Simulated scan of single mutants.
Amino acid sequence: MSVNFGAHHFRTEREADWARLEELLDKLEAKSPRRLSDTDLIDLPRLYRATLSSLSIARATSLDASLVGYLEALSTRAYFALYSAREPWGRQIKAFFTTHWPRSVRAIAWELLLSTTLLLLSAFAAYHLVRTDPAWYSAMISPELASGRDMNATPATLRESLYGKPGEAPLEIFATSLFTHNSQVAILAFALGFLFAIPTIILAVQNGAMGGAMFAAFVPHSLGWGLFAWLMIHGTTEIAAIAIASAAGIHIGRAVAFPGDRSRMTAAAEAGRRGAIVMIGVILMLLIAGLLEGFARQLVIDDSARLAIGGGMLALWITYFSFGGRRG
């Protein structure tokens, strides 16, 4: 008798909250979240927590199974209503580009500064190393990647690689292969960040060194400026993407190495969520870079035009990541 009385009292005391939560969930599932009033939006998480508390008590005191089942179902509905993405796809995509991506990149600004510095310093060091001893060139750039643009190439060969007509392979195939290769490098730099960012740093240095070594082959033939323009048309997007991907990997590595008051798993998970947002945008940047490299770089052979396109893209990315998502 006392058990039944306790169950009745328990239900009577909390049933109004359950009914109110169920009403809000019905309204939320049938209509847009924008149709909920401010009071409804405030009540929803409060009622969810109250229902979880009721479920915990019902389980602990062995109340009837039907009540426990009802509370479990109600709690599950409320969880998905609160934590699952219910916004339309279009609105989610808009929010990603206008807010989430630029904010996430700014959140790893120090790591981005480090990865960019590594790329530039390694390029500078590789350039001087190859100019001092040309044998280093083959150690930094494979014959397949060099494609005849090495230290033994003639000025005519090097000039042809910068200003010659596209090869026999269709440009769209070339663009696809470049996008695939660069995406693999960027994803690898990010994915290996959990190893205290050591492999990520090595990849950043390797990519910078390849650029520096290439300049060492062109500069002695007075083609350094031409190579710069040739790279600029797509490089401001591609190198920025690789720098950002490396920064995301370093961000995870720093969280694992120095978790602070959090556990390493918690710190890595938080950094990984931010890095995942960054990487979605990086893949888009690499797609753009692949198109620029596969089409624009091959079709635009004037240095001034190449520099204008590359400089415009650089200004676009700097402006976007500096000011995007600062409102709201």
Score class of each variant (00 low, 15 high):
Leu284Gln: 12
Ile57Thr: 11
Ala243Tyr: 04
Ala216Leu: 02
Asn182Val: 06
Ala30Trp: 02
Arg46Cys: 00
Leu41Trp: 07
Asn152Pro: 00
Pro259Ile: 05
Phe96Trp: 03
Ser2Thr: 14
Tyr127Asn: 14
Arg86Tyr: 02
Gly164Gln: 07
Val105Cys: 07
Tyr320Ala: 11
Gly294Cys: 11
Ala60Met: 06
Phe179Asn: 13
Ala315Gln: 06
Arg34Glu: 13
Trp101His: 08
His8Asn: 15
Gly290Asp: 12
Gly148Trp: 02
Ala95Thr: 11
Pro45Asp: 09
Gln92His: 04
Thr157Met: 12
Pro166Lys: 10
Ala191Ser: 11
Pro199Val: 04
Glu111Gln: 15
Ser161Lys: 08
Ala19Glu: 15
Thr51Ser: 05
Arg49Thr: 10
Ala308Ser: 06
Gln298Phe: 00
Ser263Asn: 04
Val205Arg: 07
Glu172Ile: 14
Leu41Phe: 00
Leu21Trp: 00
Ile202Trp: 09
Ala30Tyr: 05
Ala189Arg: 07
Arg49Lys: 13
Leu120Arg: 11
Tyr127Ala: 11
Glu160Val: 07
Asp150Asn: 01
Glu172Pro: 00
Tyr163Lys: 14
Thr61Met: 07
Val185Gln: 12
Ala109Glu: 10
Arg159Trp: 00
Phe194Asn: 10
Arg59Asn: 12
Ser84Phe: 01
Leu129Asn: 05
Gly164His: 01
His181Tyr: 15
His221Asp: 11
Thr51Arg: 06
Met279Phe: 01
Thr236His: 03
His8Leu: 15
Ala315Phe: 03
Ala296His: 02
Met1Ala: 15
Thr99Phe: 07
Ser54Met: 05
Leu82Ala: 08
Ala240Ile: 09
Arg264Phe: 01
Arg306Glu: 04
Asn207Lys: 03
Ala95Lys: 13
Leu24Asp: 10
Ile239Trp: 08
Thr154Leu: 08
Ala268Asn: 02
Met285Lys: 14
His251Gly: 13
Ala58Glu: 03
Met214Cys: 03
Val130Phe: 01
Asp43Val: 05
Ala191Phe: 03
Trp89Thr: 15
Asp43Ile: 07
Thr99Gln: 12
Ala305Val: 08
Arg103Leu: 07
Glu238Tyr: 01
Val105Lys: 11
Leu287Tyr: 04
Leu203Arg: 04
Phe215Ser: 11
Leu55Ala: 03
Trp18Phe: 06
Ser66Met: 09
Arg106Glu: 03
Ile280Glu: 02
Ala107Gln: 10
Ala229Asp: 03
Asp261Val: 09
Arg131Pro: 00
Arg264Met: 08
Met279Pro: 02
Ala216Met: 06
Gly224Met: 06
Pro155Ile: 09
Ile198Leu: 13
Met232Leu: 13
Gly148Leu: 01
Gly253Val: 09
Ala123Ser: 13
Phe80Cys: 13
Gly249Pro: 03
Ala95Ile: 08
Trp225Phe: 15
Trp18Pro: 01
Ala255Glu: 06
Ala135Trp: 00
Asn4Asp: 14
Phe80Leu: 14
Ile93Glu: 05
Gly6Cys: 10
Ala191Met: 10
Leu120Ser: 13
Pro170Met: 12
Pro220Lys: 12
Thr266Pro: 00
Leu292Gln: 10
Leu21Val: 04
